[in-house]
Amino acid sequence: MPSDHHKPPRQIGGELVIPILAVGFTIYFFSTIWNSPWTAQVSTFMVGGILLLVCAIFFVRAGIWLVRGEGTLGVGNLFTMDDIRTGRIGLLLTTIAYVMFIDTLGFTLMTFLFLAVSMLILAKGKNAGFITMVSAAMALTGWAVFIWAFDTRFPRGWFETTMKAVLANG
């Protein structure tokens, strides 16, 4: 493969994440079917075998680039300081918090908090009033559709319990 000398060296560290995950997962998968009937094994050994093979080819290729100095083990394509500046890391953290705390705080409240905090992070604190209003409107719409109308089994929290009591008595 002809390399373009004007380009900065390829960031192979980032590109290796997926193949390494793939190899790890495949080996784990094989360990779970080692003593299983043939029906559990046949197609996964085939698919997993090919996956290991293509990953191996990629590792060899990556090794050659490294030796030739055409690539580095950098992860610049995956993570940069820019990710903090743009609020991407912040968004990731709020997203994780969303799924973690929705069980305790309930669907509506947590959705509101998630939307408001994420938007504030991305907007760097500007338009706080507007953001609060939009988030509240979205969360209430979500409540109306998923909890009130369709009665799905979303986690109920303080807001849902209160509203239920209000609706039942009102």
Partner: peptide, 12 residues
Amino acid sequence: AAALTLATPGLV
């Protein structure tokens, strides 16, 4: 029907 579905817990 909608009202009934929505207010079923009301049959307390």
